[in-house]
Design a protein around this nucleic acid. Sequence first.
DNA 1: GTTTTTGCACTGACCAGTCAGTTCAAATTT
DNA 2: AAATTTGAACTGACTGGTCAGTGCAAAAAC
Lengths: 234, 234
Amino acid sequence: MSPAAVPVGLPTVTSPGKVPVTIRAMESSSAASGGSTRREATRQKLYEAAVTLIAEQGFSATTVDEIAERAGVAKGTVYYNFASKSVLFEELLRHGVGLLTASLREAAERTAREGGSKVDALDAMIRAGLVFIDRYPAFTQLYVAELWRTNRAWQSTLMVVRQQAVAVVEDVLREGVGNGEFSEEIDVPLTAAALVGMVLVAALDWQSFQPERSLDDVHAALSRLLQGRVSGCR
Amino acid sequence: MSPAAVPVGLPTVTSPGKVPVTIRAMESSSAASGGSTRREATRQKLYEAAVTLIAEQGFSATTVDEIAERAGVAKGTVYYNFASKSVLFEELLRHGVGLLTASLREAAERTAREGGSKVDALDAMIRAGLVFIDRYPAFTQLYVAELWRTNRAWQSTLMVVRQQAVAVVEDVLREGVGNGEFSEEIDVPLTAAALVGMVLVAALDWQSFQPERSLDDVHAALSRLLQGRVSGCR
DNA sequence: GTTTTTGCACTGACCAGTCAGTTCAAATTT
DNA sequence: AAATTTGAACTGACTGGTCAGTGCAAAAAC
């Protein structure tokens, strides 16, 4: 009876073998000196457990007991590592978006280094976005589900985090306009939002409803749309 | 302290003056003869209350007591009209998406009647989508937030309802391909999803973060993107 | 035309179950 | 020895759903 439609999960950030850096800059706790590795590993396990459960069921429907169980730790450990369920969730958000923006920025810089145009940069960022969503589908689901909600405790965290991500796209658009490569009439914030939405929704749809398609297929379709090769140019 | 960011609410379906049709075809109850007006009015009130609350807080975080209170009815009335909280939600989904698809289809047919091209049809549908989201922001929030979740009771309802909406866009794309107006190489389902996402996310971002912009601004930005007038054509 | 009956729509107190968060002594790891 | 984890018991608030009962307008009976 269980449909089991979407592949979810925010797998370990690190490669299977080592335990290392896990993307530092999770300012939350241990600021300067890296906190004990053991604690960090536990927190990582809790992130992974929480992200899939919350993506599937939503924040409120997910219990702390479930998170602890899936992470394979005791409930007390959750509260030893995080002040509350909400705080766990907020830190999870920051963690994930940190990964995403780093990836996007890296893609943009790489094309710049290789002398690519701004369209190339956007294209590379689209791909980077797709790779991210492919790797962390659960996080993406959860992010989209929460982003436009209001009256929630972590509202402010969410806005900060959103701005971080969108800003990367906006920057490239602005550079392209300054460049002469893009029309001066484009509306940078709106266009950035539209591009993000295009990637986000296409990717989630891909994961949920046509998982057999390859990342390249999706990328090609979005690329075409970006470059106006759907409706001919006039 | 209260940010009060997003304007929400799924206002009455009918114009202020009369009480009438409320968009028939809400197959739920009274099939043939219109059921009692009173009951229908109560259900409508419950829809309105539920849609804003669930958009703000999510399904699980919204209590039946809250819904009843905001609708100005007793809790028992909710259960007199709907079998359960989930059923109320499912019928709300069907109701809303029914409105959306009707609006999209109407826009497509109108351009066809007026001898417009398929790009014109897509453009008209973008506008229709924006108008819808502008009118029912809360419903849109809620739809996006729930669409890609898994393991939920209303999973199947959601898929049906999604397919209805996307199909309208896919149809126009396919006609455009058959037409010769669009490249034969476009991937219809993926492109449709991307277009929907473009509109959805741009509109929600507009509502949430730049509510001062006009619908025309947003429409213009999306139109430009659709027609590839952002990055020049080659 | 008046009285009585019917049954739909609605009410709100109530219940059984659930969950976030707490506490803490003992075990384990470093 | 210090830091971290365990695991189970407990609390107090909250929630979905129930149900006996109310109000009332139209139908039926007189």
